[in-house]
Nucleic acid binder design. Sequence first.
DNA 1: CGTTATTAATTGAACGTTCAATAAAAAAAT
DNA 2: ATTTTTTTATTGAACGTTCAATTAATAACG
Lengths: 212, 212
Amino acid sequence: MPKVGNEPLRRRQLISATMNAIDEAGLADATILRIARRAGVSAGIISHYFGGKDGLLEATMRQILTDLGNAVGERRRALDDDSPRACLGAVIEGNFDDSQVTGPAAKTWLAFWTSSMHKPDLARLQNVNDRRLYANLCFHFSRVMPRAEAQDAARGLAAMIDGLWLRGALTPEGLGAEGARRLAFACLDQLLAQHGGAPASPSAAIGETHDE
Amino acid sequence: MPKVGNEPLRRRQLISATMNAIDEAGLADATILRIARRAGVSAGIISHYFGGKDGLLEATMRQILTDLGNAVGERRRALDDDSPRACLGAVIEGNFDDSQVTGPAAKTWLAFWTSSMHKPDLARLQNVNDRRLYANLCFHFSRVMPRAEAQDAARGLAAMIDGLWLRGALTPEGLGAEGARRLAFACLDQLLAQHGGAPASPSAAIGETHDE
DNA sequence: CGTTATTAATTGAACGTTCAATAAAAAAAT
DNA sequence: ATTTTTTTATTGAACGTTCAATTAATAACG
């Protein structure tokens, strides 16, 4: 029983099904048949819309990177205060957005991370995103400390975010997203206090910096 | 041309070849043929010594975990000072030991990490190791701060170690092992100073083991 | 307004490839 | 001569891709 053609919808369905399949069975067992079945379409359609399995996987990774960028961007835009701490906080919050820490997204993210070490196409995407995050952190830190120290602070905070995020993805029972955010903010305030003189408001570290 | 039988040697050869194959091509393309060729033996021998591919992969992961335990243990034993900072430093140094950050080990480690999310056997190994590290960190932190804060400190340091290690594995060009160690120690000293009263000597963080 | 022709979307099956596992043969060692 | 170790050849299953056939939607036409 054929369905009405709707390219944007089909692409979204298939990308979403890909993440769910990876969440369920891992990238290695995310076959096109499994993905197609999850999306409620047939296997052949994948090649039709994405040129093949690789195309679908790349599109899926692009989607996750876009979601991350949006999550940070939205929180950034919602700030009425453009202090370094507020901006850096928005980056942290964005990285722990539901669209990034939820099962399917997190497992897919990690699977691509691993996979990118041997697939140049994915590595390129990864690098662009990584550099953008780093440059962003660096810029805000360097407003309150010398360049060299700002670079170290950026590297440290980036590592802490990734580490917390990774452990959250791996063991869902220990330290939820709130706990991870709390520790990330604690790290941020330590970094600011260390080199930037007086911190903004360490004790109110966890408070809302955004709404919705 | 067959070779003389030597089980321990064959096992070591094959485990080492597995890590190199994963480093070279990724877990997905680490076929038994590729691994066997790297070890200089034929494919059939893998089933003979490990019962199958899964057995070889599990043995390889066990080896990496053993190496990590040894790297930490050796440094722990080499200490003449058993202050919390010295012990925690040994854990950090052990985690950034060459046996863990070098290409093959790091990529294999990450591949198994990802894979363990969908393979109960590997997940079990991973959890045992993870809990051991966490308990170890917790114990040393709780000598200089309340239990609840020690747990947060342990989680924070563990996340920082993993994050630095992960980024090092992913992008070998930025921040070598020395840089990662430096930032990990900076994080450690911050955590100690934060809750443990006077820090050892923050500026000389990397140097000799001070007394707390 | 109804009929027909054309286009686009989708399916399901077949194909060729690759892999892990197995079995049988060959070589070394005892 | 028997046992252990290793290789080679084979098997069966699973995968991604491809393609002809089918169906729905749209356009052209009278």
